Amino acid sequence: MARTTPQSHPLTEGEPLYRRIAAQLLGELHDGTTPPGERLPGERQLAEHFGVSRETVRQALQLLRREGLVATDRRGSHAALPGLPVGTPASDGFPLGSGRAGRGAVTRAGVAWEVPPPAHAEALGVAPGRPTLMHRYRSASADGRELRTAVTSFSPVALAEVGELARYRDRADGTGAAELRRTYDWMRRAGLTLHHRDTITPIAGTPAVRVTRRVHDQYARPLEITELVMDAQQDVLVYEFTVPAAV
């Protein structure tokens, strides 16, 4: 955020300062300075940014909360504007395979709070029979010939460390659309260095392959597992790479 001052935005006569700050902050939310769902800077940073007191910032945030434009939980405040996140993810898009969907492809994605497959639960440290956040993605080409389906399970560590993911729990009923393409950016912003390991294996008797992605952080804690099934014919390939945490 570039620093602004009250002098840069003269007050309308009789208008409380906190209302002007609320309007300026709302403008920055709309223009994508802080994408929907992502955490806002703390009150101190906002006060320095706008050149006002923390009390003024607090009043401005309270006004935006009453109007349903900002929400606050134990991790801080975040934008609650409708719409998709703004900007291009800095790291590999989520879920695995979504970035290669062809032009005209029909895609659908959703989240659910449910018990993951046993193999996912064991690898992610989820107790048997306990639910976690799961994401399902489906993409079909315009002619219906190319199909990609991906299922992702998130670990308790991911939900504890990444507030943007944790907030999906209350609306993870499997029916609504879910926009998680910035997942890896959210993880990096939470201070996590991401290590990806993708294994590609042909599915016997079919022209399809299964790609299994496992992601862990710099402390070797598992974050997510994604299984992508797609039409292709390739030999087995395993590759690894690391995405550093945001600084």
Results as ranks from 00 to 15, higher is better:
Ser8Leu: 08
Pro10Gln: 04
Pro10Gly: 05
Thr12Gly: 11
Glu13Ala: 14
Gly14Ala: 09
Gly14Ile: 05
Gly14Glu: 03
Arg19Ser: 07
Arg20Glu: 14
Gln24Glu: 12
Leu26Trp: 06
Glu28Gly: 10
Glu28Val: 07
His30Ala: 08
Asp31Lys: 12
Glu38Ala: 07
Leu40Val: 08
Arg44Gly: 11
Ala47Ser: 12
Glu48Gly: 03
His49Leu: 10
Phe50Ser: 01
Val52Ile: 04
Glu55Arg: 06
Gln59Phe: 09
Leu61Tyr: 06
Leu63Lys: 04
His78Pro: 07
Ala80Phe: 00
Pro82Met: 01
Gly83Leu: 03
Gly83His: 01
Pro85Lys: 03
Pro89Lys: 01
Pro89Ile: 02
Ala101Lys: 02
Arg103Asp: 13
Gly104Lys: 08
Ala105Cys: 11
Val106Met: 07
Ala112Cys: 05
Glu114Ser: 14
Val115Cys: 10
Pro118Tyr: 07
Pro118Ser: 13
Ala119Arg: 15
Val126Gln: 05
Gly129Cys: 04
Arg130Asn: 05
Pro131Ile: 10
Leu133Thr: 04
His135Glu: 09
Arg136Ala: 15
Tyr137Thr: 13
Arg138Phe: 05
Ser139Val: 02
Ser141Lys: 12
Ser141Glu: 14
Thr149Arg: 14
Val151Arg: 09
Thr152Glu: 06
Ser153Thr: 15
Phe154Met: 06
Ser155Cys: 09
Pro156Ala: 06
Pro156Phe: 02
Ala158Met: 13
Ala158Asn: 11
Leu159His: 04
Gly163Glu: 12
Arg169Leu: 10
Asp170Cys: 01
Gly176Lys: 13
Ala177Gln: 13
Arg181Asp: 11
Arg181Thr: 12
Tyr184Thr: 09
Asp185Arg: 03
Arg188Val: 01
Ala190Asn: 05
Leu192Glu: 14
Leu194Arg: 05
Leu194Val: 01
Ile200Tyr: 12
Ala204Ile: 06
Thr206Leu: 00
Ala220Trp: 00
Arg221Asn: 12
Pro222His: 04
Glu224Lys: 05
Ile225Leu: 12
Ile225Asp: 03
Val236Glu: 14
Thr242Cys: 06
Val243Gly: 02
Ala245Val: 00
Val247Pro: 15
